[in-house]
Design a protein around this nucleic acid. Structure first.
Length: 973
RNA sequence: GGGCUUUUAGCUCAGUUGGCUAGAGCGCAGCAUUCACAUUGCUGAGGUCACAGGUUCGAGCCCUGUAAAGCCCACCA
């Protein structure tokens, strides 16, 4: 086994991943469908005691590349997966690929246009087949990238959103909804993109605040004597009423006199839609217009008369308080129209051309028509004024085109009932959210949800399994029937012909089944992996996806689809700005993986990131991850060297007896057969813990001349430097990582591992082991740290595991480490050694001149702790000698309260230290003052916990002692 | 208009039920270096925890208000 002097991720990563995959370690241990005849396994599928752990990947777009957000998703989900796998759960991480209906369609149509074709040259089925090939061609990229990131997902179970079982499940749900009356065909206003020629759900609309013009237009009131046919107008749907002579001159309304108003002024940002007006509305409580309600106004530029109605929608405070009602082109007006049973006149076609308008305007584009209308209004004196305003405008989130509210017949899901059920389960706290507040945000959203348009006029997607009757005469037959045979354009039932609706489902309709379809849940075979343990995804998908999965999960299975939801925030660039192609600040995760390694990327992207927070990301954090990998690699290299040197001793035999679970690999149970689940994940209490003091295999380092031989002492064991201490530190680290994983505090987990490995293990323990060696303990502690870091840095830990001479199997299938036993008193004593070394180093640094460490010897006075650790102290401080004080103290006293240590510094140099010493006394004095002030407060002594008070008291005596010593020193100078 | 979030070192962020001298990474300064690692080691500088009140023996943390930044939802014609 050979360790190169630095870790080169590229040399290992792909081989390791291939080896894992070949060994089948990603697949769950326990079959995903209950095989028990008497239905066992169903009972224990509940979260708390479950031995299962399931998580599904938010499916990346099948024809795209992974972006930085995917990188984060995979890093987090895979960390969870690997962690729970190490804890012995039967872990199922289901990978996915998304057909991404509209997204992919847009990309494809662009490609099609680039080839000089248009969608209109092909029928729907041809287009579907073409996009299928288009996606199939690129689909491998995304999957390779997931592998490069180290996702330990069950590839055998990869689910594509157009897989047969997905479509089947979606149809089953749709049929159930159809039968339950939860889905209906309705003519409503929908958001329609004129460029893409499809409707959207509300959630897909992007609102932007934009400057616009508000025009004021005069609508003359039809005086009583002029009224011909009263409100029966509504029945005469002819858009252009002819033959009515204009007898009314446009007169500006006199606002103070409500009785003899001859005209009303309405404000609009869309004058071209006035041809679609079927009423004007005033607020029912608006006294100014009370008398006019029920009368008619004449629509400018036409001969049509429309009623004045009273509706709450009109805001008396806004403008003149009068609003024109265009039910076919405005969402509010549509609702007003429904309340008052107004006709809907569509004046802009789906292609954006004027229809149902006077001859002059017919066929114009909407923008062109607006100009013409304004000019005509002005000419005829109907335009009273205009002003600039800012208003929010709906845009297509893909192409930015202004969406046209368009009247269309579509399939709608009655979400009210679904939402109600979801809300009750959410209020019952059945799903835990990270961050917590998202639950309330979600409830608020669900409470205001409107019916969901699931029809899309694009070919790429799951065909809606509904067929429309063609034969008008078969009056007894239903207009629409459900049928799964969507590969047919036309079917026959009871001798009646039906044609398929050409539309496809909104992707979110099928995606809302994701937890169900990925786990193969079915009514007959409810898998123990559903509900999922956790749903991890980005905050931007709370409404679009998470909300719908919850509603659909409950509707289909009666259970929430997952127990916990972790939502990561957006990854912003180094300056906290959103990444976007146009800004050119997009970071490609694969570039970073190639440059620094997969582990470095994972460590970097996880670091400094909390649930739900949009946070900046820079290459620096990846670099620091790379450094950690290299550090760990070199720690392992050193330990392997020590082990090699130690070979031939009895150490090998000894260590074999000491290890319990971890090194006896469980790889047999991964051999492909559904084996038993790993042993219980709880630590077998004490079974494999070791008392380090019992480990006898210690050897002094060779060939060093020793200034003072370690003396034996009754109070300290001279050959145990740092051993209890590191066992304590590692045990605490492992415990903290467990807590963090439990609460999804990934960043903190990485932080703890980082500092334990680097600042504690490498800087102190490994250093001490260069002098005194405990080979079994070195092996044991290294294994523990490798396993603990594995969820976050899978490749380097596996690479090391494979390179170490004494380890077996894969690290990925090891058992999560249990606590290392230690003696707390000894551990604490080592803390003092650290304090001594640090203080000596600091003092040496503050003395004038370079390379001080080599100049001055260290002297100690009757101090068994120092004596016992002399070699280590000497090596770490690099002083030329460390000796017992002979005679009276001399030189420079080290600023420690409980240890008498001196640096053998000439008086002249000590004098130069005077300022530093004075400053030190002052700063300790300030701390002491603070502590004293606290103790002077009787309430503190009274009310604070006794333990805390005692600590304060101890600290005071320490500080006092220190100050006394330092002052003594000052006097000498 | 409604809702959510953030504000701690030069930068990006931790700080879990309130508790001793507020931490990390990167950056910066000084020193070191054949002997696991320059992807290194050691040392250090740098913070009135946005502001103002309040609760408490004690507040970065809890409460109230203010300011700034960001995000989401929404039917301003």
């Amino acid at each position: 086994m050979k360790f190169a002097s630095s870790y080169e991720p590229n040399q290992y990563e792909s081989d390791i991943y291939a080896a894992w995959e070949a060994a089948g370690v990603f697949q769950p241990l326990v079959p995903t469908v209950p095989i028990d005849d008497d239905g066992n396994g169903v009972d224990d599928r509940f979260h708390e005691n479950a031995k299962y752990y399931s998580i599904v990947m938010p499916p990346p777009n099948a024809n795209g590349n992974l972006h930085i957000g995917h990188g984060l998703t995979i890093a987090l989900e895979d960390a969870l997966t690997r962690y729970y796998r190490l804890r012995g759960r039967s872990t199922w991480y289901v990978p996915g690929a998304d057909h991404a209906g509209f997204e992919t369609w847009v990309v494809y149509e662009r490609a099609l246009e680039a080839e000089g074709h248009t969608r209109f040259e092909f029928d729907r089925d041809e287009l579907y087949a073409r996009v299928w090939d288009f996606v199939a061609m690129q689909r491998g990229n995304m999957e390779l990238q997931l592998r490069a990131l180290g996702a330990s997902c069950a590839w055998n179970d990869l689910t594509f959103t157009l897989d047969e079982n997905v479509i089947d499940r979606v149809y089953t749900t749709f049929e159930k909804m159809w039968n339950d009356g939860m889905v209906y065909r309705g003519e409503k206003l929908v958001n329609f993109c004129p460029k893409h020629q499809t409707a959207f759900a509300d959630i897909e609309v992007e609102h932007r605040d934009e400057p616009g013009t508000l025009w004021e237009i005069v609508y003359p009131v039809v005086q009583d004597e002029d009224v011909k046919s009263c409100a029966s107008e509504a029945s005469s749907l002819a858009p252009v009423v002819t033959g009515l002579a204009s007898s009314i001159a446009p007169v500006v309304a006199n606002a103070s006199e409500s009785h003899n108003l001859t005209s009303l002024i309405v404000s609009t940002t869309r004058p071209e839609t006035l041809f679609g007006d079927t009423a004007v509305a005033v607020n029912p409580n608006d006294a100014r217009y009370a008398d006019l309600v029920g009368k008619m106004v004449r629509l400018p530029l036409t001969d049509r008369e429309i009623p004045i109605i009273a509706d709450e929608h009109a805001d008396p405070e806004y403008g003149t308080g009068v609003v024109k009602i265009t039910p076919a082109h405005d969402f509010d007006d549509f609702e007003v129209g429904e309340r008052h049973d107004l006709p809907r006149i569509q004046v802009i076609s789906e292609e954006g051309k004027m229809i149902n308008v006077p001859e002059k305007y017919l066929g114009m584009g909407a923008a062109e028509c607006r100009k013409a209308v304004l000019s005509d209004l002005k000419e005829q004196g109907f335009l009273k004024g205009e002003k600039q305003i800012t208003h929010s405008v709906a845009h297509c989130y893909k192409c930015g085109t202004v969406l046209e509210p368009t009247l269309k017949e579509q399939w709608f899901v009655d979400v009210k009932k679904l939402a109600k059920v979801a809300i009750s389960h959410l209020e019952n706290n059945e799903i835990r959210f990270y961050p917590e507040n998202k639950a309330r945000v979600l409830i608020n959203y669900l409470e205001n949800l409107k019916d969901w348009n699931i029809s899309r006029q694009i070919p790429w997607g799951i065909a809606i399994p509904m067929f429309r009757k063609v034969d008008e005469e078969a009056t007894d037959e239903p207009e629409w029937i459900f049928d799964r045979r969507t590969h047919l354009k036309e079917i026959e039932r009871s001798g009646v012909k039906y044609v398929r609706d050409e539309d496809t489902f909104d992707t979110w309709f099928s995606s809302s089944h994701w937890p169900i379809v990925c786990t193969d849940w079915s009514e007959e075979n409810p898998t123990p992996y559903y509900p999922l343990n956790v749903m991890e995804t980005g905050v931007d998908l709370l409404f679009a996806w998470v909300a719908r999965m919850i509603m659909m999960g409950l509707y289909v299975t009666g259970e929430v689809p997952f127990y916990e939801v972790y939502m990561h925030g957006m990854v912003l660039d180094a300056h906290g700005k959103k990444m976007s192609k146009s800004k050119g600040n997009v970071i490609n995760p694969m570039d970073l993986v190639a440059k620094y390694g997969s582990d470095a990327f994972r460590l970097g992207i996880v670091r400094g990131r909390g649930a739900g927070m949009n946070q900046a990301f820079s290459e620096n954090s990846v670099i620091s991850g790379r450094n950690l990998c290299n550090k760990l690699w070199n720690i392992s290299r050193l330990i392997q060297n020590i082990v090699d040197e130690d070979d031939g001793d009895k150490a090998g035999v000894l260590s074999a007896n000491l290890f319990s679970g971890p090194t006896s690999s469980s790889s047999t149970s991964y051999a492909g057969t559904p084996g038993e689940p790993s042993p219980s994940e709880t630590n077998p209490s004490g079974a494999s813990g070791i008392y380090v003091s019992e480990l006898a295999n210690r050897t002094l380092s060779r060939g060093k001349d020793i200034a003072a031989t370690p003396a034996s002492s009754s109070s300290y064991t001279n050959d145990n430097m740092g051993e209890d201490w590191i066992c304590r530190e590692i045990s605490e680290c492992v415990k903290q990582v467990e807590d963090c994983m439990n609460d999804y505090r990934f960043s903190e987990a990485v932080e703890v591992l980082y500092s334990t490995i680097w600042d504690k293990y490498a800087d102190w323990f490994i250093e001490s082991q260069k002098i005194y060696r405990n080979v079994p303990l070195l092996k044991r502690t290294l294994e523990t740290l490798l396993i603990a870091l594995h969820p976050f840095a899978p490749f380097v830990t596996e690479a090391i595991w494979q390179n170490l001479s004494w380890t077996d199997g894969f690290i990925i299938t090891q058992e999560w480490p249990c606590e290392l036993k230690y003696d707390p008193i000894t551990a604490e004593q080592f803390e003092s050694v650290i304090g001594i070394v640090s203080e000596v180093r600091g003092t040496l640094q503050s003395l004038p001149g370079a390379s001080n460490a080599k100049k001055y010897a260290l002297m100690y006075d009757k101090d068994s702790l120092v004596e016992d650790n002399l070699l280590l102290i000497r090596n770490l401080t690099k002083v030329p000698a460390a000796v017992a004080l002979d005679g009276a103290p001399r030189g420079l006293r080290i600023a420690l309260a409980n240890h008498e240590l001196y640096l053998d510094v000439p008086e002249k140099v000590v004098a130069l230290y005077k300022d530093a010493l004075t400053e030190k006394i002052l700063s300790v004095g300030r701390e002491l003052d603070g502590l004293n002030a606290r103790m002077m407060n009787p309430n503190y002594v009274d009310k604070a916990p006794a333990e805390l008070v005692k600590e304060t008291r101890d600290a005071i005596s320490d500080k006092e002692a220190l100050i006394a010593r330092l002052k003594q020193q000052l006097e000498v100078i």
